[in-house]
């Protein structure tokens, strides 16, 4: 009950800006597909036996979800502790700490699913979807969203100053996006760096999405990829509960 109330609050806030947000989750992939998929793809040719456009679409899909999930759990979460004090307001009601974390993660999942569906619509229009398995990708993206947003929320709840976010983006988010198999296969990376890609939840989601839109088998058993993402989600949620509790008790 408390969880749904927390979700509802986030949705009511979102209602105010959903048009702008859906528009940007529509326009961004279009720009991406045209510039990178078609423009760069014209030089690159095929990757792993498919056109570069088809190959990159699932990667950009997952990385869009990844960035959205991180973005929505940095400033909004810190702000809700520091300025809005929305969590303090909830704290004075029967809503529990677990509800606060779970409700917000549901919201992230919701946002990511909407953005993914819009993105898939655009990609389909460019003929980049080749398998009915595509229907699982919004859920893969939602799982990825929670896997990264839960630990990010924990981080945001533990800091006092938003300048840490610049470090997070520079040293975690951008490298992840560049080296997690979104734009080129991880096999192109020096062997030394590959484990870093494997450690990133983004890579696992990218491979799952790619196998789903192209209709090929993922590099690891699908179950292993999903389990790894679940592990991040669960550990992240536990960390977030701990960080929220610390922040809200004195």
């Amino acid at each position: 009950m408390g969880t749904l109330a927390v979700l509802e609050r986030a949705l009511v806030s979102y209602k105010r800006l959903w048009q702008a947000s859906v528009f940007s989750s529509f326009i961004l992939p279009v720009l991406f597909v045209i510039s990178i998929g078609i423009g760069v793809g014209g030089y690159v040719g095929d990757v792993d036996g498919v056109s570069y456009l088809d190959w990159i679409v699932p990667g950009v899909l997952a990385s869009t979800a990844f960035q959205m999930a991180v973005g929505e759990s940095t400033f909004p979460v810190l702000g809700d502790f520091k300025w809005v004090k929305g969590y303090h307001a909830m704290r004075a009601t029967p809503v529990g700490i677990g509800d606060m974390v779970a409700g917000y993660q549901l919201y992230i999942a919701f946002r990511v699913i909407i953005a993914s569906v819009v993105f898939l619509g655009v990609s389909a229009a460019f003929g980049a979807i080749h398998s009915p398995w595509v229907v699982v990708t919004p859920f893969v993206c939602a799982l990825l969203g929670v896997a990264v947003s839960a630990p990010t929320s924990a981080f945001s709840a533990s800091i006092e100053n938003d300048s840490y976010f610049a470090l997070l983006f520079r040293f975690v988010v951008i490298p992840s996006t560049l080296f997690a198999g979104v734009f080129f296969p991880v096999s192109q990376l020096p062997a030394l760096l590959r484990p870093l890609a494997y450690a990133s939840p983004l890579w696992h989601a990218v491979e799952l999405c790619r196998s789903a839109t192209l209709g090929v088998a993922p590099p690891w058993p699908a179950v292993a990829h999903v389990a790894y993402l679940l592990l991040w989600a669960v550990l992240g949620a536990l960390l977030a509960v701990r960080a929220f509790r610390r922040r809200l008790s004195d």
Partner: peptide, 8 residues
């Protein structure tokens, strides 16, 4: 109304 929902 959102606050009311916290109380179920």
């Amino acid at each position: 109304t959102t606050y009311a929902r916290y109380f179920g």
